[in-house]
Each structure stands twice: as structure tokens, then as C-alpha cells.
Design a protein around this nucleic acid. Sequence first.
DNA 1: TCACATTTAATTGTTCGCAATTGAATGCGG
DNA 2: CCGCATTCAATTGCGAACAATTAAATGTGA
Lengths: 141, 141
Amino acid sequence: MARKQMVADQPLRLDNQICFAVYSAAHAFNRVYRPLLDGLGLTYPQYLVMLVLWEHDGVPLKDIGERLFLDSGTLTPLLKRLETARLIKRTRNTEDEREVLIALTAHGHALKEKARAVPMSILAASACSVGELTAMKNEIV
Amino acid sequence: MARKQMVADQPLRLDNQICFAVYSAAHAFNRVYRPLLDGLGLTYPQYLVMLVLWEHDGVPLKDIGERLFLDSGTLTPLLKRLETARLIKRTRNTEDEREVLIALTAHGHALKEKARAVPMSILAASACSVGELTAMKNEIV
DNA sequence: TCACATTTAATTGTTCGCAATTGAATGCGG
DNA sequence: CCGCATTCAATTGCGAACAATTAAATGTGA
């Protein structure tokens, strides 16, 4: 292959694509989180929903979706599974029957205490300092 | 809520979690890529497989999996779809019948030329300089 | 008030991603 | 050569993720 061709190929090389770096990092985090969250009976997206609710209980489905960039097609079944697990309750807003309000059950609220151990374990597993991770986060956001 | 409680809650706040930043960034990239890849008739994971093949044609399924951190449960159906789209061919390795070799068809090889436009479009859409993106990538990998 | 647009969840269908299992091919120790 | 472990792909089952559609509630303009 001529040199000119190789140069033109550079942008298509996997290693040069930041999207792949981000994609891989997301999967890597998922692999680290999975065994920890198994102990809580949560998947990673379910954990994210619980984080939102632990900060702000009783919010509309729509708000959770905006916070996590997810739509009803993803959230409706996910929230039904959380309801089956007795972590949340779903009720229509009486002020506006279009909205579904998501509220923690006592069980869901209690799970927060168990979840406190998660960030520290992730930190240990990621073999990075807090400073390194914070710097990385700020680069991304 | 007492101050002590709020301090203890900090590690559980969504915005403080680097994993969420990475997770969001991955989804954001996906949203930018989707319309571009639609023009090629590829999904993002399919595009990644094609990137691998454009660099190195005729490799075992296993090698693609190691490169992209995907297993046969993900790759087998994905590769079957690429075969249905006539972009690749799957053949057993005659030296070792356990392996499946993945090779580009003429059509699959030709698609590389159309794909050259993708990285540049992404760059434009991401509203970052090449330097910024490269710096970000190096932080992540 | 009535027609019509907008908002919101739910549903349907397709594709990923992964754990767990299965089954075939290969490698290896005795 | 034989028994057994290992490797590799395929399969099954479940949970995301998202586009597109549907349906109900609400808002709005004439």
C-alpha cells in the first residue's frame, strides 16, 4: 500500500477514534460495577435511576428521563422492574394525569445505606486516585 | 437534613460520578454517529467491526472480539446481519474448524471509501478541535 | 365551546451486551 | 491411542437503548 493511502486511512483507524475510547471506557465501568451492583440486586441503569431518586424523591418519569437522557421506551419497562422489586411505586399525578410520579418505597429508601459502599469500592477497583478520576471527569463533561 | 448527612451523600450524587460522565458521553457519541452511519446502513457496533476489518481483513471472530471487548454472544448475530447485508463472508478455518474467519466482500471493502467522510463529520458535529479531542482520548485510554 | 396541537407514557420491533450453557474441534498427558 | 481438559462459536434468556407509533390528557386559538 502506498504511503498516501496509509495517511488517508489514519482517520479510520480504531485507535485514533475518541468515540471508541469512550465506548470502551463505558463498557469497562460497566464490568466493574456489575459485581458490586449484583449485591444490591440492581443493574447499572437501575442504579442510576435510584441515584436520581435518592437525591430527589417523587419526581415525574419525564424528569428522570431528562436527567439520564433516557426516554419512556427505556424507562417504562425498567421502572416496572424496580416496582416489581418493591423499590419504587408508580402513581399517576392527580394534577396532570399524563404524568407518572416515581416514589421510593421504604425498602427503596433503605437501599441507599447499602449503596454508600459502592463509590468507594469503584475507586479501589479503578486503581486511580480521586484526583485523577476527578480530572478525567472534568475533561469529559 | 443535617450537614453530616449531606457530606455523606456526596459520593452518591450523580454529578460526582465519573462513570455517569463516561456513560453519558458514550450515549452522546452514539446520537451523533447514528444519523451519519444510517447513510452507510450500519449501526455503531457494526461500524466498529467494519473498522477492524478495514484495517485487517480475514481475521477470526475471536480476534474481533478481543479488539472490541465483545464475546460471541454479541458478535455471532451481529456478523450474521453484516453477512445478510453482503458486507462480509463467514467461513470456517480449514486449519482449525473451531474458528470462524471473517472476510470482507467486494461490497464491504468498497464501503470503506464512503466511510472516510464519517470521522470528519463527527469532528464538525462535536464542536471540538482535533487537539481537544486527542487530549480527551489520551486521558481516557 | 370545539377543533386541533402538544405533552406524556406505553407499546412494538430491532439491535446490543452479557451470563450461562451447549456442542464440536482440538490439544495433551499418560 | 484414549480419556479429559481446553478452546471456540452458537444458542438462550434477560435487560437495556432507541425509533416509531399509539392513546390519553391537557393546552390553545378561533
